[in-house]
């Protein structure tokens, strides 16, 4: 099968690669770019662990082929680090509100919540819960995550 040349930006860094078409964006990020913050849980769109920003929108990186990201701007959880280092506002809120235990779901949640708050800076509790429904967490019971999202929204500089 014919490999395809792609050019894209990952966390601001221009990348060129030659990839087999069946390579998912998630595997490209983890294997070719060494960005293992993007996790893979189910590999068929259900769990949300692989969520990244593709041209600013939260997507399942396991349901996008790397070839489809040709020309795009991709942001992974590694790319959310503020310019001076440290944690983003959403990450800080997650830490402060015990929104993680094992941490497997956390990158996907942090990326999803970052995208969600960019579009809904003043969410209701119902909107927060609805927005979290696309990310499975097997540890926390979600309460801490809901608190973290609310806190990040209240701080107002989540993104």
């Amino acid at each position: 099968m014919t490999d395809v040349d792609i050019r894209l930006r990952v966390n601001g860094v221009p990348r060129r690669a030659t990839v087999p078409p069946r390579l998912t964006l998630a595997d490209f990020l983890r294997t070719d770019c060494g960005l293992t913050g993007t996790h893979l849980g189910c590999e068929h769109g259900v769990c949300g662990a692989c969520t990244v920003l593709l041209d600013g929108e939260a997507v399942r990186a396991c349901l996008v082929f790397a070839v489809q990201a040709d020309g795009a701007e991709v942001t992974t959880v590694e790319g959310l680090t503020p310019p001076g280092g440290g944690l983003s506002a959403v990450q800080t809120a997650f830490r402060d509100h015990h929104a993680l235990q094992c941490g497997f779901c956390t990158p996907g949640l942090v990326v999803s919540v970052t995208a969600f708050l960019a579009e809904h800076p003043r969410p209701t509790d119902e909107e927060i819960r609805e927005a979290l429904s696309g990310n499975l967490c097997r540890c926390t019971g979600y309460q801490g995550i809901v608190d973290a999202v609310r806190a990040a929204a209240e701080r107002g500089d989540a993104v």
Binding site: G45, G48, T51, L54, E57, A58, V59, R60, L63, V64, S112, A115, F116, E130, A131, S133, G134
Partner: peptide, 12 residues
């Protein structure tokens, strides 16, 4: 539309 999957699904 909001009843379809999740917002990360609807973006694609």
């Amino acid at each position: 539309t909001p009843l379809i999957g999740h917002f990360q699904i609807r973006s694609r």
